[in-house]
Design a protein around this nucleic acid. Structure first.
Lengths: 172, 172
DNA sequence: TACCATGGTTCAATGAATGAACCCAAAGGG
DNA sequence: CCCTTTGGGTTCATTCATTGAACCATGGTA
């Protein structure tokens, strides 16, 4: 890809970020990981992504240091993918983008809304809690269904997110 | 693209946002527009993007309502692309992503830093001015060269950005 | 008139995405 | 002991997008 070749020539932090999370599907994988998705099969079911692409994206995110692949059972061997601290810090960009999409590209209102765990206040597109006056880290946030949620999907992830769910906590 | 097909199935604001600005090069075009790039040739020179791809991306952004194509001279006919208010609101996502890239993917520090025009304070990844305690809109921001800037490019846009430049204001 | 700049379009070759099929190891059931 | 299922992948042919070079059209300019 020319973006890769121009990496140095671009001389721009945004271009470097896009090298890591700018490919098709990648940011949706990250978003799912933020919701607490950890297993290959759950990503697959929730995203409707081709298996080969999912494998490539997970490997690339591990390589880049956004995800950590860890063995959580030996027999049979099972691995899970969880966000690293570097991955946690994608919270603000992901939230800001989703908020922009919700504001300009839907007629039914946002599909999901985010609240500050410690006070329950809804946070804005910059992750700010108006009550506490702080920028809420992903560890202190919760997703709740929003007014625009269609609720037509029936995979385990969609089911879990139909009720409030703490960010990063594993899907059942 | 499957993302397109799954548009409704995804039921997610982030997926909708990525439909508009998630393709390769698109967000870099938007970033350049934020810097004040308006002419086809300037995008071309600054991005090193294939002409066909640039044409397609500009048309798609106009179609989506992020850019406005306007005739600024009749003889010879010349058009320029400028950000709509909807485009201005990509400021936070773009800034947040660039900030993340600068924090995790460069060793030399950020290439460009952003300051609040009215007070001169540097703003953070959430566009916040610590002095004024507000979220700075793009109209009140200025780019300045950062410590990690390589300065090897010599197109008109790179030249213009080697000194402080008000966001959205046209490149000379 | 010849040349040049701007702002594109067209085209062949390459590379990535897609979706279906296949693979494999380990349980679990009978 | 055999058969099936489940999770987590890989392989492969087809389709689609990207790339880079070449071409084109319009309207100045020397």
């Amino acid at each position: 890809m020319a973006l890769g070749k121009n990496y140095d020539a671009q001389d721009c932090s945004l271009a470097k970020a896009l090298e890591v999370i700018g490919e098709r599907w990648t940011l949706l994988v990250v978003r799912d990981a933020m919701y607490g998705v950890r297993r290959y099969g759950d990503f697959l079911a929730h995203l409707d992504i081709p298996r080969a692409v999912l494998s490539q994206r997970l490997a690339a995110l591990v390589e880049a240091g956004v995800l950590d692949k860890r063995r959580y059972r030996d027999s049979p061997p099972r691995d899970e993918y969880i966000l690293t601290p570097m991955g946690h810090e994608l919270w603000l960009p992901v939230l800001a983008l989703a908020e922009w999409g919700g504001r300009h590209l839907t007629s039914t209102g946002p599909r999901r809304v985010f609240h500050h765990l410690t006070c329950g206040t809804r946070i804005d597109g910059a992750a700010r809690c108006a009550t506490c006056g702080v920028q809420v880290p992903i560890e202190e946030a919760e997703v709740r269904p929003g007014p625009g949620l269609a609720g037509t999907r029936d995979d385990p992830v969609s089911e879990a997110l139909r009720t409030p769910h703490r960010m990063l906590h594993p899907i059942p």
